[in-house]
């Protein structure tokens, strides 16, 4: 969006903040594609991007009366979208952790093929994790997330080493699988 477009958006936002409902549609029409594209760059899953863009615009229009005319309207909108994307990503991460899933972050800059490959790897790792005991699974997940339990580090390393060995054996289809 060029400077002229940004200024026009700001004027429309000021009007809507003052209660002029005729400014709603032009603002929405201008912001939806921008916020959606921005969210798509932030989040790997297009459905998540849509959700984040929708929530961001709902929040923006809900609080538009707080819009400060001194601020850049587009930056304000994208700031809300960025916050929503981060929140959604954290929420998904927590959900995965609670479900004992693999905390693999997709690289958002990667192309569709690379992303598909990442997803495939994630599915395989998740499947192998499910074959491990609960203790081993917890240890491997801690290792992947770079977490360490408080206390005896040597014992943890020994247990982790054993858990990783079992994980690798399952991964390569070794004796544990048989």
């Amino acid at each position: 969006m060029d400077q002229q477009g940004k200024e026009a958006l700001k004027v429309l936002m000021i009007r809507l903040a003052d209660g002029d409902r005729t400014a709603f549609d032009p603002i929405f029409t201008a912001l939806w594609p921008l916020v959606l594209r921005f969210s798509e760059r932030f989040l790997a899953d297009p459905r998540d991007a849509e959700d984040a863009a929708q929530t961001a615009l709902i929040k923006l229009f809900s609080h538009i009366s707080d819009f400060d005319p001194e601020r850049d309207a587009l930056a304000w909108a994208l700031g809300i979208a960025a916050y929503e994307c981060k929140t959604l990503r954290k929420k998904k991460q927590r959900r995965r952790e609670t479900a004992g899933e693999v905390p693999i972050e997709a690289d958002e800059r990667a192309g569709p093929e690379s992303l598909a490959s990442q997803r495939e790897t994630e599915a395989i790792v998740r499947e192998i994790l499910s074959t491990l005991s609960e203790k081993d699974r917890e240890l491997v997940l801690m290792h992947m997330e770079d977490r360490r339990p408080p206390g005896d580090d040597a014992t943890f390393r020994k247990r982790l080493s054993r858990a990783l060995r079992r994980f690798k054996l399952n991964f390569t289809g070794g004796p544990n699988d048989a």
Binding site: L16, F24, W32, Q54, L57
Partner: peptide, 9 residues
Amino acid sequence: ARLLARRAY
């Protein structure tokens, strides 16, 4: 999204 945003407004 438009409908929900309008309601939120």
